[in-house]
Write a protein that binds this DNA or RNA. Structure first.
Lengths: 339, 339
DNA sequence: GTGAAAGCGCTAACAC
DNA sequence: GTGTTAGCGCTTTCAC
């Protein structure tokens, strides 16, 4: 009862795919142990045998059976990855995923996606933008596996590692920039989510306003809010607070989405109304005018999470290690041309 | 030499995490066989024992060890997923991934990401927008695993399953729509990639032009081209062919990206220049004016790929099965208001 | 309806 | 430097 036509050159019998360790051992005239050691570079074997073994392995198209290895070592060489399920931020999350995938590949790890509850067997977990009110996240946090979060986690339990960016400094810099460009009362369209990133932005904004004697103009929109909602939030803001001379949008893509609304309110972006985003993206670059934004370097972020997780798994990084990714403001026409 | 602190309630000894089948058997006072059968609902066991076993399993926090199961059955309950690495189309691909993840979870499958060569052990492969000139794709195609592609594959080898959408009909409909709205010579800004989707669009466009006695105005931009490139392509088109009264952009996001260029050429989108996209996205909805586009339903597409793959793995769908996802044009202001 | 035993492919003691 | 042996946790004959 074969399952699937095998493709391997030899070994016509066989439960699935390629040759086994035993086949290689037989082929090379040595023991399984020797093959195992030779293949993994354990210094026991002589150079001659090693070469012979490597050769036979290649000839036979040998691929180690990872299930067998996992069973024996209880190491899966797999990291599980969880991402919040929002279309908003698609570009950020996609880049993040590629960063994770790339670095994982470099480290010889597989990446498996965690959707609902089902925790796949993995050596560690990466949680991107973990939101404490997400039950899946909470469950993953105490699955008993080492966890690295991208951005801090505000819920129960401490992850073994955290990689985060200094959004406080970045937003402060952005607000200072707006001020330097002549804006006196910047408003914040915040993302209404429990992600630490979003909360930090709100806190920073409040602090900055207090520090500069500016009346805060905070409006919230649900994370992942559709454009119409964002537009109406901005529309109301502009109607109720006509003095507003600058708007900072927290959510990825939001700044671009509200451009039309700003315009239809008779304001000119980059002139009498400065506009900026806390998340850079293609949409910011292609908007008209291009929108000043903070480049969060998601790909790098993803890679750093893997690196940290590897360090923790290898016992090199102590649990509780915190890493950072530097982020930068990219100034564009939407915040004026420097007067 | 314990590896990691175990979390399971009992079983303080143990190589990794949770209780084993043997533990449950011991706890319930039956044999491993019985436990195995009870847990998987194989009709051998009596209702009483089944209940008892289920109970003990729950009490012990038993989780089957997938490596052991895989080793025994050579079934991994895992599908590998490959996605072209382009930021362009991030939204499409992200939705696709979520569609895959969701449906896989429903079917009890794990999803693992394929980056570079490293083919993870999986029961099957899903290739999203496979491009024949991508060596990774080519390699995956003959890894000896059942493959389902999202969109047809133009390279060597036949996938076991294909899910595709009728882009020919959709684009034809779109071109007809433009014509109905008064455009006489629509241009196509094509995506220069070997993805079947892109080639189909070009072919369809050529055919439509021939059929309507229209001179084709085809321009190509690399897939994933940055906005500036797209802008310059459109800029040149408009300069060289001032008669152009409609532009269709193939690539995801491109139509939104070229809006400024169109405007700076003194044209008014939706009035003397109609604009449409072959891929719908947030950017199309939020553009100013909103852009007519084809909704490719990527999430559904992802789910369908998993469904088909499951069917093939289960032997229900024959190899060579072809599925389709219906797609629809969404008319918006960028193609005029109906005269 | 249930159990005993074999073995999937691999690695890690422990010999020699 | 190399081989032998004993499992990892599970499913699957085959007996009863």
């Amino acid at each position: 009862m074969r399952r699937v036509a095998a493709r391997s050159p030899r070994k016509p019998a066989g439960s699935g795919a390629s040759a086994t360790l035993a086949d290689v051992a037989r082929g090379a005239g040595v023991s399984k142990t020797t093959v195992s050691d030779a293949l993994r570079g354990h210094g026991r074997v002589s150079d001659a045998t090693r070469r012979a073994v490597l050769d036979t392995a290649r000839r036979l198209g040998y691929t180690p059976n990872r299930s067998a290895r996992s069973l024996r070592t209880s190491v899966t060489d797999t990291v599980a990855l969880h991402i919040p399920e929002f279309l908003t931020g698609a570009e950020y999350y996609m880049s993040f995923v590629f960063g994770v995938a790339e670095q994982a590949a470099r480290a010889g790890l597989n990446v498996t996606l965690v959707s609902s509850g089902r925790l796949p067997q993995a050596d560690g977990l990466i949680l991107c933008d973990p939101m404490p009110d997400n039950p899946v996240v909470a469950e993953l946090m105490d699955a008993g596996l080492p966890v690295v979060t991208a951005e801090r986690y505000g819920g129960e339990g401490r992850p073994a590692g955290v990689v985060w960016s200094d959004h406080e400094t970045a937003l402060t810099e952005l607000l200072d920039h707006l001020r330097a460009r002549g804006a006196r009362g910047p408003a914040l369209i915040a993302s209404d989510t429990t992600a630490d990133w979003a909360l930090t932005l709100q806190r920073t904004y409040a602090r900055w306003c207090a520090g500069h004697g500016v009346r805060p103009l905070l409006r919230k929109a649900p994370f992942g809010a559709p454009p119409e909602v964002l537009r109406s939030v901005v529309g109301e803001l502009l109607a109720e607070e006509p003095e507003t001379d600058a708007i900072v949008c927290a959510a990825d893509g939001a700044a671009a989405a509200v451009l039309p609304e700003i315009r239809s309110a008779g304001r000119v972006v980059g002139e009498d109304l400065l506009l900026a985003s806390c998340v850079d993206s293609l949409a910011m670059r292609t908007a008209e005018p291009p929108i000043t934004a903070i480049d969060l370097r998601p790909r790098h972020m993803g890679a750093e999470c893997v690196r940290l997780l590897c360090g923790i798994l290898a016992g090199e990084a102590p649990s509780g290690t915190i890493g950072t990714v530097a982020i930068d403001m990219v100034v564009r026409a939407s915040t004026g041309s420097g007067r």
